[in-house]
Simulated assay, not measured.
Amino acid sequence: MNEAGRLGDCLASLSFCDEVVVVDSFSTDDTVAIARAHGARVLQRAFEGYRSQKQFAVEQAAHDWVLCLDADERVDATLRAAIEAERAAGFADAAGYRFARLSNYFGRFLRHGNAYPDRVLRLFDRRRGGWRGNREVHESASVDGLVKTLRGDLLHFPYRSLEQQLLKTQRYARMMAEHDFRRGKRATLAKLVLAPAWRFWRGYLLRGGFLDGWHGLVYAYVRANYVRQKTVMLWLLQQGQPVADPPQDRP
Rank of each mutant, 00 (worst) to 15 (best):
residue 122 R to F: 00
residue 245 D to G: 03
residue 91 F to V: 04
residue 95 A to I: 13
residue 179 H to K: 06
residue 115 A to C: 12
residue 184 G to M: 11
residue 227 V to R: 12
residue 178 E to Q: 10
residue 52 S to K: 07
residue 213 G to V: 09
residue 112 H to S: 09
residue 30 D to R: 11
residue 127 R to V: 06
residue 117 P to A: 08
residue 41 R to D: 06
residue 82 A to P: 10
residue 222 V to N: 08
residue 231 T to L: 07
residue 17 C to K: 03
residue 158 P to M: 00
residue 9 D to C: 04
residue 126 R to W: 06
residue 178 E to N: 01
residue 138 H to W: 10
residue 135 R to G: 14
residue 101 R to A: 03
residue 174 R to V: 04
residue 99 F to N: 05
residue 156 H to R: 12
residue 249 D to V: 10
residue 166 L to I: 02
residue 176 M to R: 13
residue 163 E to M: 11
residue 162 L to G: 03
residue 182 R to M: 02
residue 71 A to W: 02
residue 180 D to T: 03
residue 30 D to T: 05
residue 235 W to F: 14
residue 224 A to C: 12
residue 173 A to Q: 07
residue 178 E to F: 00
residue 82 A to R: 00
residue 186 R to W: 04
residue 98 R to L: 01
residue 122 R to I: 00
residue 156 H to T: 12
residue 107 G to L: 01
residue 150 L to F: 00
residue 67 L to T: 02
residue 145 G to F: 03
residue 184 G to P: 15
residue 23 V to T: 13
residue 121 L to C: 12
residue 248 Q to G: 04
residue 133 G to D: 12
residue 207 R to V: 01
residue 246 P to K: 05
residue 171 R to T: 12
residue 86 E to H: 02
residue 55 Q to D: 10
residue 46 A to Q: 10
residue 190 A to P: 12
residue 102 L to D: 02
residue 123 L to S: 01
residue 26 F to I: 00
residue 234 L to F: 06
residue 158 P to I: 00
residue 23 V to G: 11
residue 166 L to Y: 03
residue 201 W to M: 04
residue 27 S to I: 01
residue 52 S to L: 02
residue 118 D to Q: 07
residue 199 R to M: 05
residue 102 L to I: 09
residue 48 E to T: 10
residue 130 G to W: 01
residue 229 Q to C: 13
residue 10 C to R: 07
residue 163 E to T: 15
residue 28 T to S: 15
residue 17 C to M: 08
residue 194 L to I: 04
residue 154 L to K: 11
residue 104 N to R: 11
residue 3 E to M: 11
residue 243 V to L: 00
residue 177 A to T: 00
residue 186 R to C: 04
residue 71 A to C: 14
residue 5 G to C: 07
residue 203 G to R: 00
residue 100 A to T: 09
residue 66 V to A: 02
residue 140 S to R: 11
residue 63 H to Q: 13
residue 189 L to Q: 11
residue 235 W to M: 13
